[in-house]
Design a protein around this nucleic acid. Sequence first.
DNA 1: TCCCTGCGGGAAAGGGCTTTCTCTGCGGTA
DNA 2: TACCGCAGAGAAAGCCCTTTCCCGCAGGGA
Lengths: 357, 357
Amino acid sequence: MATLSDVARRAGVSPATASRVINGSSKPVTDELRERVLAAVAELQYVPNAHAQLLARSHRSAVGVIVHDVSDPYFAEITRGLQRVATDQGRLLMICNSYRDPDRELEYVELLRGHQVAALILAGSGYHDEAFTRQLNEKLAAYEATGGRVAVIGRHEHSGDAVMPDNRAGGYLAGRELCGLGHRAIGVVAGPRILTTTTDRLAGLRQALTEQGRELPERRIRYAEFDRDGGAEATARLLDADPELTAIVALNDSMAIGALATLRARSLAVPQQISVVGFDDMPIAQDVTPALTTVRLPLVDMGVRAMSLVLGAEAPAPRREVLPAELVRRDTAGPAPRSTRAASGSAPRARRGDATS
Amino acid sequence: MATLSDVARRAGVSPATASRVINGSSKPVTDELRERVLAAVAELQYVPNAHAQLLARSHRSAVGVIVHDVSDPYFAEITRGLQRVATDQGRLLMICNSYRDPDRELEYVELLRGHQVAALILAGSGYHDEAFTRQLNEKLAAYEATGGRVAVIGRHEHSGDAVMPDNRAGGYLAGRELCGLGHRAIGVVAGPRILTTTTDRLAGLRQALTEQGRELPERRIRYAEFDRDGGAEATARLLDADPELTAIVALNDSMAIGALATLRARSLAVPQQISVVGFDDMPIAQDVTPALTTVRLPLVDMGVRAMSLVLGAEAPAPRREVLPAELVRRDTAGPAPRSTRAASGSAPRARRGDATS
DNA sequence: TCCCTGCGGGAAAGGGCTTTCTCTGCGGTA
DNA sequence: TACCGCAGAGAAAGCCCTTTCCCGCAGGGA
């Protein structure tokens, strides 16, 4: 690899001059030398060593982002928002997938700190795990102590600025909608119970049901992975245990899609026999059939807000922005059926016993 | 930020010793000193400056990846494959989204070169654009000349190793299937015509039709963005121009989902009145209703292969692996209807197609 | 004519780390 | 007792760049 001094030598100038030309320094350089340098750069196909540059200018410019998985639509949308602001401000993003592994999160905080990022954004759900939360907080605090900025999206338990989707209100909206439609036997297809996102959404849902004189017993909740297959599987378990269910709330849209798959496999008509409500309003929600009724979160906006906080002026105290959830009525939630399916037995002719993956 | 010499000073040792302890060097250090260093590291919350490290060890370890968009399922799957191998070998991945912007691709090649990546992988479609192709090839060649390894996925026009999905064969499979089902008026919802992926798939499709004595006139092809909305819009244009169509081939699954949306909006029953075939077999393909008949590409495997090539032994000449396409029959392709829709008007809503997976 | 100013350029000091080379002191051999 | 070898620690030379500081020189004012 050609280095700066190679370029300088070839152009017959000092490295200092070469550097100035290449970086468009404010210091003036005569056109003659400038051209010689540029020619040398082209001939040698010179590309500056980014590490050396980053080391030399102590300028911290990149921003680190830790998400569960960028290719999950939920995070893809948030990331889009983050990117938009970062690009506007000429910042590079370093995005890391933790795949919901707390240890990996911790590691990535170190890694990104080591890469001298100017700010750190953690997006996703928090964990009900005190030891971990404390550890993470310590690391974040250490980072902030050295001038780093931190923002979290959807995790309340940390220092730094926070952008929070109103998960609880969203759960409430889903519950109220189903109650309004006359549903009494409502099952929940939930994500891992260790995630605060799961419990927050659940809490809102429970509150809505309670207010309507209904309840949400644990036996009507099934916890599984926060993805399509988890949703399919949890729905199957739910249905097996309680065939009387007239509605299912899935705690995210991926799970809702899995739920729909299971219901289809069991030939249960949605929403005639059973209603489904999702959560997040991922782009695909409008393209499944029937189109998914769900709770929308302003995902892109959450990213925009978080990045703006972290790149904007520093505040004396951590800020906290709560972004509202909104119910999107489509076709998977309808009035509760008159009679239960109890008579008709378990799904006549379920072509396949279970949801496949 | 604490530095290595801070740690060394605090532990009362030289920076050399501190470095050896921290990096687990093979050089022996007495337990006494080792513990002092470790304690200092913990107290100071020391994290090595990654840039300084990368600069000091000339060891190039990270691998650069340029894709169109990681959050697009097509690339998400490929990336999964790349990651798997990279992680196994302890390599860090730097992933960049070009959003199908050739200039950005060029920039990212420079950027990644500047970051001293050990190898570069470009995934996605090539462009029918000679000037750009030449430029990119020059950059890649320059990079290879300095010892960098290069692999491309799904782009034939470049030097370096190549992993190619058999797009042409895939197009052929789709065409043959529809011909076999008796379709004669087949429309194509295509991606941008500047992409080689589009033209390759189209070529295979055309070949299949030609072999069956049918043809594929330009007026039955609509080019649009390679995404859901592009598919929806192209389908609408196609239908407006030629209401006799009994089948549509969408050149990727996202477009196919858009096509299904348009057909649903127009109350055309799939597959009774009109068949649809997609391409790629993205995970969501089995969850739309009716489940999408499509051409499967071994996406994860493509990633695995490419990363293995690039991290494996160097070959005297560029290697080239072609991975086969495979038809996945689900519920959106059926026999061509007897009569045209001209008479029958809007379809009696077929609610659900059938089996998933 | 002399001095000051300002411009264009180079020398050199970091930036934080790794690693080779060197040095010290100890145990063991002749 | 003299010498050798080696283990364990430190000194210092990079790695490649940026940027401050300094210098020489030409032009302008006194």
